[in-house]
Design a protein around this nucleic acid. Structure first.
Lengths: 253, 253
DNA sequence: CATAAGCCTTTCCGTTGCGTAAGGGTCAAG
DNA sequence: CTTGACCCTTACGCAACGGAAAGGCTTATG
C-alpha cells in the first residue's frame, strides 16, 4: 500500500505540512519519490510515524524522538524515565503556580471589597468577634487570657498587608492539606510543609510560639467540633490528618 | 534614583536584553533617554517591572501582561481566574501524560525482562501459583470452583499483549487509587473512574462480570488481610476506600 | 592626550513546530 | 481543453528572548 502526503496525513491525523516538515528534518523520510517529484510513503513509514506520534504525545521534543526511533543504541527506557522526571518537575512547578495564582485571586477579591469603601477595619473586627465567639472560651481556658487578648490585639493592629499575607497563608494551608492528605502519611514531606505553614500562620496572631501550644491546638482541632469542621470541609479526615502532621512536626524538631 | 539598563537588569534579576525587548514591544518603555541615547529608568519603571515580572512568573504571556498592566479598564481579576483555569487544564493534561509514561515504562521494563530469555511463560505460571496460594481457598469458597479455574486458565492462555495491558491497567489503578483517595469521597468522579478501571481489570481474568461478584470482591478487600495489604501499600486506607468506591459504583449503575 | 576597558546602541540571525500563504507544476475527470 | 484537486519549494510569522556583530560614548589610567 502506498500513500501520498495527504493520504498519510488523513490516515494519521496530522497535517501534510507536518509530514513535509518531518521530511525536512529527516525525522520521517518518504519511502521513495514519484516521477513527478511527489512523496510516496509505504507501510514502514506508517509504522514509524505512529511511533513518532506516540512519543510526541508524551511531550517529547522531535530531536529526541529522532534519537529514540532512529538510533537503536539509544537507551529508550532511560529516555522515558528522564522524561518522566521532567514531567514531574513541570507538574510540581504548575502546582506552585496554581497556589500563587489562587492566593492572588483571593487577595484581590478581598482587596476590592475592602478598598471599595474602607470595609477593611470592619472586616477585621468581624473576624475578631467570630474568633472570640467561637473559640474564645476554650482558648482562654487552655492558653490563658493573655495569649488570647494578645491575639485579638495583634489581629486588630495588623497591617493590611500582613492581613493579606495571613489570609493567603490560610488558602495555602487548605491546598497543602489536600495535597498532603493524598500522601496518606503525616510524616511525609508535604505534611511537614503543611505543619510548618501552619506554624507560620499562627505567628501572625500569637505573640510567641511554643511546641506545646502548637501541639495543644492540634489536639483541639479534632476534639472540638467547630475547629474540626473548619478543616474537615477541606478534606474528609483533614482535621485528624492535620493534627497528626503537627504532632509529628513538633516532635521531630 | 535613575538606572541604566544594566543597573535595572541587575536590580531585578532579568537580562538587559530582556529590558530592551520589553522596550521594543512597548511593554516597558524607559522614563527618558540620555543625551547619548542611553535608556534611563526611574522609580515608576521599577515598580512596573516588578508587576510585570510577577505576572510573568505566573506563566502569563507578555501580550496579556501588557493588557493587564497598561489597560486600567481590563478586568484583572477575571484574567487571573481565566489563567487559573488554564493552569488547571495544563496540570490535568500533565497528569494524563505522567500516567501514560508510567505505564509505558513499566510495560517496557517487563518487556525487556521477558524477551530477555523467554521468562514470560514462567512469570505467568508464577502469578497463577501465587494467586492460588494466596486467595485460592477463599475465592473458591465464595465464587465456586468454576470461576477460579476459569480465571487461572484465562491467565495461562492470556496473550502476551493482553498480559501487558492487564499489568498496565493495574499500575493505572494504583495511581488512580491515590488520586481518588485524595478527593476523600468514594462517590467522586475519580473514585468512580477507579471502580470502573477495576472492573475492566477484572474482565481480564473473569469470564463474566456481575455486580454481585464485584461487590463481594470489594468486601473481601477489607475483610481479608492479604487482599487488604495489596492496596494498603498504595495508600493508608486504600483498601477501605476502594471497597466503598466499588460498592458505590455497582449501586449507581 | 591616547588608549583600553566597559559601558551603551541598533540590527539581525537562531531557537521549536509547525500555519499560512505565494507561485507554480501534475493529474484525473468532464 | 479546462477545471479543480492535488503536489512541489520557498519563505515569512509566532514567543520570548540569547547571542553576536559593528559601532558609539565615557571614564580611568599611563
Amino acid at each position: 500500500m502506498e500513500y501520498s502526503v495527504k493520504e498519510l496525513a488523513e490516515l494519521s491525523g496530522v497535517s501534510s505540512r507536518t509530514l513535509r516538515y518531518y521530511d525536512e528534518i529527516s525525522l520521517l523520510k518518504p519511502a521513495r519519490w514519484s516521477e513527478a517529484g511527489y512523496r510516496v510513503y509505504e507501510e514502514k513509514q506508517v509504522d514509524l510515524l505512529q511511533q513518532i506520534l506516540f512519543y510526541r504525545e508524551l511531550g517529547i521534543e522531535l530531536k529526541e524522538i529522532k534519537r529514540i526511533v532512529c538510533d537503536p543504541s539509544y537507551d529508550q527506557l532511560e529516555a522515558l524515565k528522564g522524561h518522566y522526571r521532567e514531567l514531574e518537575q513541570k507538574r510540581n512547578h504548575l502546582d506552585q503556580l496554581l497556589s500563587t495564582v489562587r492566593q492572588t485571586i483571593s487577595s484581590r477579591e478581598r482587596g476590592i471589597r475592602m478598598s471599595d469603601s474602607d470595609k477593611f477595619a470592619g472586616f477585621k473586627e468581624q473576624l475578631i468577634e467570630e474568633n472570640e465567639k467561637n473559640y474564645g472560651k476554650e482558648a482562654r481556658e487552655k492558653y490563658g487570657e493573655d495569649t488570647i487578648d494578645e491575639s485579638n490585639a495583634r489581629l486588630r493592629d495588623m497591617s493590611e498587608e500582613n492581613f493579606e499575607k495571613m489570609k493567603a497563608l490560610e488558602e495555602d494551608i487548605f491546598q497543602l492539606l489536600k495535597e498532603a492528605y493524598a500522601t496518606g502519611n503525616p510524616a511525609s514531606k508535604k505534611a511537614q510543609e503543611l505543619a510548618d505553614k501552619h506554624r507560620q500562620w499562627l505567628l501572625y496572631s500569637w505573640k510567641s510560639y511554643s511546641k506545646e501550644a502548637h501541639a495543644g491546638l492540634a489536639e483541639m482541632y479534632v476534639a472540638d467540633e467547630r475547629f474540626k469542621a473548619y478543616y474537615e470541609k477541606v478534606v474528609q479526615g483533614g482535621a485528624q490528618f492535620l493534627k497528626e502532621a503537627i504532632l509529628n512536626y513538633v516532635a521531630s524538631e
